[in-house]
Structure formats: structure tokens, C-alpha cells
Nucleic acid binder design. Sequence first.
DNA 1: CGTGCGGACTTGACAGTGTCAAGCCATCCG
DNA 2: CGGATGGCTTGACACTGTCAAGTCCGCACG
Lengths: 199, 199
Amino acid sequence: MTNPPRSPDLRSRLLDAGLELLRNAGVSAVTMRAVAARADVSHAAPGYVFGDRAGLLTAMAERGFDELTAHLSGRGDGPEAGTINSMVEVGMRYLDFERREPEIYRLLFDTPEIRRAEPGVATAGAAAFGVLTRAVPPGIVSPAYGLAPVLAWAVVHGLASLGRTGALDRQFEQTVGRDAAQHALLTWIAHAVTPAPTD
Amino acid sequence: MTNPPRSPDLRSRLLDAGLELLRNAGVSAVTMRAVAARADVSHAAPGYVFGDRAGLLTAMAERGFDELTAHLSGRGDGPEAGTINSMVEVGMRYLDFERREPEIYRLLFDTPEIRRAEPGVATAGAAAFGVLTRAVPPGIVSPAYGLAPVLAWAVVHGLASLGRTGALDRQFEQTVGRDAAQHALLTWIAHAVTPAPTD
DNA sequence: CGTGCGGACTTGACAGTGTCAAGCCATCCG
DNA sequence: CGGATGGCTTGACACTGTCAAGTCCGCACG
């Protein structure tokens, strides 16, 4: 271990470059050579740092999960955790993240190359799920306890995915706006998940 | 229009080859040249037939949606449509399809190259959604009517997607098995969606 | 004050990819 | 019987990910 890196934090510069390419042109534009060029290094530098393209995408996903966690957490001014309102708010933030950063969202959930077992991305993903879990009121889903957060995530994630395909929009336009419909669904689910009082 | 095709239904043979590659090795293995080789034609034949790789994947997705529709429809021996039981059954078939044909499922819902606006794949996708819609009992989701099928699809689709990431399994193992938990969630949602009597 | 060593990248190469222009060749129309 | 037309092939090109070999700089050690 003699040599310090020549350019300071090459790794994070490569990640910046990759995320910018991702945002602007989708995951298919995140090319080893394009990332290298944007970071002003040789075409093989990303391979040296991340091993292979899957490694690069995995590292980017870790950052993406961090951004998702931050977006879900907000600035701390939300309603108290574990209430119906907090669940709805976190759900809406989830959907908002998908609309604001669709390519990052795709990277996190729709990109098979990512190695989800790697500890970095696994814990980052678990952290995002943790925000959601804490926001969900302690609910009962018969006959099994503990499934309310799962159900909540499934609903939110399903709404986000379906929203992208356009299948949702047609249905939504017949009724209310997309936002209002999503909000209504989340509110409804939140009430349904919550056992009895608390309302 | 003078010339008949030399090899009978080259197009469908290419699609067969593509779907086999997809099933065995994922969408990244569906290469123009690999598909061509498997169908015993020149390496540029798929490009000639489908225009480009996105065209090939789109055509494959159309077939995939047909298979999904068939799988959801079953052999016609299910419970009567529009009941709670039918909704649960179709939902479970949806999840079953994802487990049986994970790569096709990914192609349909997680592959951005697909041109979902093309009429073929759009109508095929709408047909699959139609099976789900007809199976859902006429429900009320306050304050907007008509959203029960959307909610049902979101739940099912979200469960399927989350199941793949492994996040679900850990949660499920703490309680029941995966199948049982999914079934419970669907049953619960079906009851919640259905207004009052009918039970 | 060298001197060599190890690690951070670079250079150069290779096989494989999608796409396109040009070509071949059987068939149909005249 | 002779074009011409359209189905598919051949050949080429730019681009991709990956890897072996090389370069060069800073540190440890003599």
C-alpha cells in the first residue's frame, strides 16, 4: 500500500459521471468508456476501479438508494412517524422520487445487472425500506402480523411501476388526476391497514 | 409484392429463437446474432425482419403478453368472474407466472427498450389487464370509482417485483411461507376492495 | 542519496455487438 | 424470355466490455 490515488477520489468522480449519464440518457448510456471520458480518465479506468460494468452499476445503485432514503426522509418536518398521515406522505414521496428521477428508479428496481447481494447496496436498500417501515402505522393484516409494511411497499411500488407503462394514466384520466388518485389510494390503504382506533 | 418468403414464417421462427434464449439466459442474451444463429439464418436477418433490436424485443413482448393473458385466463374452470375468489385466483396466477417465467416477466415490465406504444404490444398488454379487470369485483375506492382494478394490479405487480429483490422473502419467512402470505394479502385486499355484501 | 518495488492507472489489443449499404438470386410480370 | 422486384445475405464499420502488458510516480529501505 504505497501509492495514493493520483486524482483525488477518482471513484466518486466516476460515480458522478455515471449518474449524470444515467439521468440524461438512461442506463444504456452508462458505458464504461463514456463514464471514463466524462471523468477525463482512460477508457479502462472504470474497469480498474469497479471490476466490471455490473460493479459500476452496483456502486451507482448504492448511491441511488441513498438518494431515495434521503428523499423519503424529507427535511424532518413531516407528521409524526407511525401515523396514517406519515404513511401517506412517505408513499407520495416514493412516487414523487420515481417521477423526479425515473432513470435512477429504473436502475434500482428494474436493472438485472445489479448485484443486490453485495453488502453496500443491500444495506442501502434496507435503509430505504426502513424509512417506509417506520412510517407505516402498526397494522394488522389477517392472518399474519408484520405484513403491513410489505403491503404498503407493494402498493406504492406497483403504482410507480404501472404509472410508467401508461396503463395507469388512461385509468386515472377517467376519474381524477394522477396525483389525486394516487393520494386517494394511499389514504385508503393506510386506513385499511390500521386496525381500529387512531383515526 | 412479387416474392414469397423463402423459409416459411421466418418471423415466427425468429421469435421462437428469441424467446428460448430469453428463457434460458435472460434478455441480455437475446442478441441479434444469437437469435439469427439459432434460427439458422444470416446475422442480419433479424434486423431485416424487425428493424432493430428494440423491434425484436417489442415483438417478443407481444407474444409474452399473450402468454400472460393465457396463463391468467387459465382453462376456464375458475370461480365465476367478478367475485372475491376470482380476484384472488387471478392474482395468484399472476404471481405464478412471474415465478414460472421470470425472464418473460422482466421483459414485459422491466425492459425499457420495448416500445410500448406500438399497437401490437399495447393491445396485447391491454388484454392481460382486461383479464385482471374482469376478475375484480366491482369495488369502491373512495373517493374515486373505477380504481379497484388499478389497486389490485398495483398490489399484485408490486408483490411480484418485490419478491424478486429478496426483500420480501426475509419478511415472509418471519411469518408464514411466501405463497401463504401472498394469498393472505390478496384475500385481504379483495375483501377490502369489495363494498359491503357479496361476502 | 540512490534504488528498487508496488500500486495507480494507461495503452493497446481482441472478440463480440448492432446497424447499414451493397449484392445475390429466385420468382413474378410483361 | 427478359427485366425487375423484393427476401435475405455478405461484408463492413463504429462501438462495446474486458484483459494483458506497460508506464510512471511515491515510498521504503540501503
